[in-house]
Design a protein around this nucleic acid. Sequence first.
DNA 1: TGATATAAGACTAAGTATATCTTAATTATC
DNA 2: GATAATTAAGATATACTTAGTCTTATATCA
Lengths: 142, 142
Amino acid sequence: MSVRLTRAGEYAVRCVLCLARRGRGELVSRKEVANEADIPGQFLAKIAQQLARQGVIEILQGAGGGYRLLAEPNHITMLEVIETIIGEISLNDCVVRPASCENSGLCAVHQVWCQAQEQLRDHLRGVTFADLLAEEDKLLHS
Amino acid sequence: MSVRLTRAGEYAVRCVLCLARRGRGELVSRKEVANEADIPGQFLAKIAQQLARQGVIEILQGAGGGYRLLAEPNHITMLEVIETIIGEISLNDCVVRPASCENSGLCAVHQVWCQAQEQLRDHLRGVTFADLLAEEDKLLHS
DNA sequence: TGATATAAGACTAAGTATATCTTAATTATC
DNA sequence: GATAATTAAGATATACTTAGTCTTATATCA
């Protein structure tokens, strides 16, 4: 293994991006999202449920049901979506669970990981889905 | 799972840090390193072999053998040691293997991952084992 | 030659990711 | 109310990765 995003996290980003393209409040069926974002249907269901619990999307059950974005794309960050699925981003266990490292407070390596981790989280916190849409638009028209 | 360092990578950092404390060229037996850095002996052997192949340390076989640092601590970076063990740091498969993502070049998300990944690598590239030793010293005398 | 130490590959056990399957619950429409 | 459409939720399966051990071979020193 290495420092990498999981498939589920990747799917979550794609799912939210797909909904963001339609705009906040627009209802999109699971099948539609699955097709457009190339996500296995049942797997998408699991991911959507997590996103719903977090309050990022709303799920409507029954016939004619589907998913829809609850917030405006410029209020949803990549960090939020990703951490909803994979938990708080952590580069080293000792940073999140200090118990796993006896002398975290006195460990120089520990501090490096903490800084790098926060830098990474800040970076992802600074990217909203509105940014992604804008960038996407720019890429398509260039 | 989440974005995190592997145990082997963590051990590699500890191993090099342990050797750096003794100074470049100082021979330290595997058992000594294993005890001091709290690494399973046989597992350390594997890690040391990778570090040796990369040219970070030298391994002396036979009775009285052991490991020693080849370069000065201020010329060994955390990035180098970590990537020797876990391969190039990657936050998302599509960044390292563009084949896994059909439209990498036109994907806004892809670009975010690339930037975040390089920022993280730059950060780790900027930390040498001399820095870690100095920080360690500061922590102990404060 | 014997004791000490690492090399290298096979092997194992546990954990995680990536789904899929099945049954149940919910909603719209006829 | 019945039926079809759609998601919920839990169990299960498979493959992969990690973390570590075991075994046999090789190298070095005394």
